[in-house]
Design a protein around this nucleic acid. Structure first.
Length: 628
DNA sequence: GCCGTTTTCGGCCCGACTGTTTTCAGTCG
């Protein structure tokens, strides 16, 4: 595995140790910022030399040295950073899990440690029981109750939730909020709107009709002491799925609400993985129409791009906050509290325009450095759900699918597709009832017959005879070439040996990419989000070979896979390689996962030209034929 | 610790909410 994740984790831990030691908070922030930068690198961090590291925004001389130290020692088996180890000698390791408890920050945990000698969770529980915790400054009964609630949540409090679980949940709550009297508009914001593969919480923004039921007030005007929560906030906090109200003020509330797990192939965590009822945090903010665009921009983030936008505003003698874009008159009272007329604020488009920028789609709002690029080159026309006209990876009851060929066609037609590929498993995938060569030959005949029938019915859809053929551990394919040659489309995917060495995985996948009869590499790494890391091949080599051989790399749209992931899609589009967005359908509902694949594609800057699923049938068939 | 077409020093986002306080520190996003 590339060391990116390990480096980021270590830097984040250093940030927390610095906080606990009471060091300069900006020094701590610098470490977590560097961690984010490393996390979003497309390639392996260990391949970067010092000049390359220094070229990254947010990484300077000191942190670059620490990263190099970490990578160099990792080669010897035990990655270490001397300064990290020095800090670990000063700070008891047991304090770090305490810092994860919601509501507890570095100041409080440090006070626990320094004055009460609390160094781990067990000692904290003891201090709660014998009431000694109450002797800390600013520590009362309610604060202790909060800590107890946080303790019982355990790891649930910090777990990131898969996009495919969080988005339906957010949409359900948004629908309930829209039904409330006086609500004009509800939008999902945060990393969920940016389409990230996992999210920590759900952010919802509510626009209410002015002058109805407690006008939303801001800044100094509002105070939790004197103002009652907005009726929408009250309603939200009493929704049936809400298990705990974390905070509730005039215009904002945070709760923990129940996650509805799926009942499909992947349940997204069974009861065994959830000692407590699975919940996640949901934040709601109520806003007036005139601020809605500014708030949507602000709460969609990313934080990194927000900082650039605010700086850009200042450069133009403007000031940007969640209430609008205002003239910057240097007054100490915020402009929204002085009825200053905003330059923009009701729409995101208006704010981008006033800042001299094109509209940036939410999925493209991850990296700070991209803004300068969008300013000079514009934002590419990213692929959209409506562009997708074909699904090239689907299973039937012949292997492990739940649909007949006819059902598959019906689903594809209802989605407006002109083409659907039947790609059942190959013989080595015995557990998935993979087809023997004889059964595959019979299926090819059945597909040809079905196409004739569909044509006679006047149906404007084409069924492709295909296979999802296993890429075996050594890179050979699970069927002979003469059989593959008979197929309209070949999707080659790794299913077993998913923990092999990176060098082996690279060679294995390269062989498949270079195979003259292969069109698409299905879920190239085989990872499962929050479950299985999958293969870690040299992605730049795969991408270069894919471009060279006119082979498409798949973005598997299932929310448990999203494989290729966003970073690698971005590297592939940058290199001009072809990509396919496919649902790997096993069940009719799997077609609905397409939007997660499209979101991942957009995060990777994929345009319709490079996405084979958007092509006309003629263009698609010509490409498939070019490999026969 | 990072960064800089005003700066190599002096900044680093800032507003909402809570709980414990007699006016605000800590946490969070």
């Amino acid at each position: 595995m590339p060391l990116n994740e390990a480096v980021a984790e270590r830097l984040n831990e250093m940030c927390r140790l610095l906080e606990l030691l009471g060091e300069n908070q900006f020094k701590a922030i610098a470490h977590s910022r560097a961690a984010r930068v490393i996390e979003s690198l497309p390639g392996p961090v260990e391949q970067l030399d010092k000049p390359a590291l220094l070229a990254l925004d947010g990484i300077g001389d000191k942190i670059a040295d620490k990263i190099i130290e970490f990578c160099a020692s990792a080669a010897g088996g035990t990655p270490r950073i001397a300064e990290h180890e020095k800090m670990l000698k000063q700070v008891p390791a047991g304090l770090l899990p305490i810092l994860d408890i919601p509501g507890l920050g570095p100041k409080t945990v440090r006070a626990m440690w320094q004055t009460l000698g609390i160094t781990d969770i067990a000692a904290l529980k003891k201090a709660i029981d014998d009431k000694s915790l109450l002797t800390l400054p600013r520590m009362g009964e309610k604060a202790v109750e909060k800590i107890k609630a946080g303790l019982s949540l355990g790891e649930e409090a910090t777990r990131r939730i898969a996009l495919g679980l969080a988005l339906p949940m957010a949409e359900r709550i948004a629908a309930e909020l829209r039904a409330i009297d006086g609500v004009e508009r509800v939008e999902i914001a945060g990393s969920l709107r940016r389409g990230r593969e996992t999210v920590a919480d759900i952010d919802l923004l509510v626009e209410t009709a002015e002058g109805r039921g407690g006008k939303a007030r801001t800044g100094k005007q509002a105070s939790a002491k004197t103002d009652q929560p907005h009726p929408v906030i009250e309603k939200f906090c009493s929704l049936p799925d809400v298990r705990q109200v974390i905070s509730k003020g005039p215009t904002r509330a945070s709760v923990r609400a129940v996650i509805n797990l799926h009942s499909g192939r992947w349940k997204g965590g069974g009861p065994d993985e959830h000692p407590v009822e699975p919940t996640m945090q949901v934040d709601v903010r109520v806003l007036p129409k005139k601020s809605f665009g500014a708030a949507l921009l602000y709460f969609t983030g990313s934080k990194d791009q927000n900082i650039v936008l605010r700086q850009r505003a200042l450069d133009r003698n403007l000031t940007l906050n969640e209430y609008g874009l205002f003239p910057d008159d240097k007054e100490p009272t915020p402009p929204q509290d002085r009825d200053v007329r905003p330059v923009a604020g009701s729409t995101e488009e208006g704010i981008y325009k006033a800042l001299g920028l094109p509209f940036i789609p939410p999925e493209a709002r991850e990296h700070a450095a991209d803004i300068a690029h969008f300013e000079t080159s514009g934002v590419p026309r990213l692929v959209e759900l409506a562009d997708i006209k074909a699904d090239l990876h689907a299973h039937t009851t012949d292997s492990d699918g739940r649909m007949s060929m006819r059902e598959l066609v019906a689903q594809a037609k209802s989605r407006g597709f002109h083409t659907i590929a039947v790609t059942d498993h190959s013989k080595s995938s015995a557990i998935a009832n993979g087809l023997s060569p004889e059964r595959l030959r019979a299926q090819i005949k059945a597909v040809r017959a079905l196409n004739k029938q569909l044509q006679s019915e006047g149906a404007d859809i084409r069924v492709l005879a295909g296979s999802e053929v296993d890429i075996l551990a050594d890179g050979t394919l699970d069927y002979d070439d003469d059989l593959l040659q008979e197929l309209d489309i070949v999707v080659a995917s790794p299913h077993a040996a998913l923990s092999q060495e990176p060098a082996l995985a690279t060679r294995r996948l390269l062989r498949a990419i270079e195979h003259p009869l292969v069109h698409i590499i299905g879920h190239p790494t085989g990872r499962l989000i929050n479950r299985r890391a999958g293969l870690a091949p040299a992605m730049d080599e795969l991408i270069a070979a894919a471009k060279q051989n006119n082979t498409a790399l798949e973005i598997n749209a299932h929310w448990m896979r999203l494989d290729l992931r966003d970073l690698h899609v971005r590297a592939a589009t940058g290199a001009g390689a072809l990509l396919a967005i496919d649902c790997d359908d096993h069940d009719p509902s799997d077609f609905d996962n397409l939007r997660y694949g499209v979101a991942t594609a957009r995060r990777g800057m994929l345009t319709p030209e490079l996405c084979v699923n958007t092509w006309s049938r003629e263009k698609l068939l010509a490409w498939l034929k070019s490999k026969r």
